[in-house]
């Protein structure tokens, strides 16, 4: 029911357009620092762990670059970063909309004759679907870069070996799989969080509870849909 109201024809496109731009900044651009930091460190950690695990002299060292790329593109950036975004963005959305509910701001929108669900939730969903793939692309690049920097500086492999590794056996379809996951996760995070925020009743305590529920349910659904999509795309 809520989603039917969300995707009802916008009452004024120009206002919705401004909201989408605002949300792209609010949801996406503001998440860039945390995504960047986590990606660089995780890329480094993945490479060092791979180097530690691959102690067999028969295995070529370019495997480090290959492993980092595969881990980052297939799982770390699309899933783990989206789980982190579920915490940051999801709680933010649920608490923002929840606070608007308990302070009667949503009632004020309704009484003005505005479709409050559409006005508040639609721009967030669209903004996340637009901006999350860019965030994840940046995460992939920084993760692989972090692996490169850590791999070289720890003496685990040479620059040539790492770069050769990240180019080896590259299948562009894996990017298609990863970005499909990201779009689905963007929808899950924003819609689930908005749902819990929109249906908040009571006071500040309930806003906190809605925020927690939003993160928990989004995270579980991300993992569930991650599994389903992996089966669809990769289980030949």
């Amino acid at each position: 029911m809520l989603m039917m109201r969300v995707f009802k024809k916008p009452q004024k496109w120009s206002v919705y357009y401004k909201q989408i731009i605002f949300e792209i900044d609010n949801i996406g651009i503001s998440s860039l620092p945390i995504v960047a930091i986590i990606s660089i460190f995780m890329g480094g950690i993945i490479t060092i762990q791979a180097a530690f695990s691959i102690s067999n002299p028969l295995l070529p060292l370019y495997v480090l670059g290959f492993t980092a790329r595969e881990s980052i593109i297939l799982e770390f950036s699309p899933t783990i970063v989206c789980l982190i975004l579920a915490g940051k963005v999801g709680s933010n959305i649920a608490s923002e909309i929840g606070a608007m509910r308990i302070t009667e701001q949503i009632d004020a929108l309704e009484i003005m004759g505005i479709n409050s669900a559409g006005y508040l939730i639609f721009p967030k969903i669209i903004a996340a679907i637009i901006i999350f793939p860019f965030l994840i692309a940046i995460s992939m690049f920084l993760g692989i870069l972090g692996g490169y920097v850590m791999g070289i500086s720890a003496g685990a492999c040479s620059s040539y070996q790492y770069v050769y590794g990240i180019q080896t056996y590259f299948d562009p379809n894996k990017l298609y799989y990863s970005f499909t996951k990201v779009v689905v996760f963007a929808f899950i995070i924003t819609s689930i969080s908005s749902y819990f925020g929109y249906n908040t009743s009571g006071g500040a305590l309930e806003v906190g509870k809605s925020s927690t529920k939003a993160v928990v349910y989004s995270s579980v659904l991300i993992l569930l849909f991650g599994l389903i999509l992996t089966n669809i795309f990769l289980n030949h």
């Binding site: 608007m100 302070t103 009667e104 701001q105 009632d107 004020a108």
Partner: peptide, 9 residues
């Protein structure tokens, strides 16, 4: 006019 104003924060 709402009791708390209900202005958009």
């Amino acid at each position: 006019l709402f009791q708390g104003g209900a202005l958009f924060d």
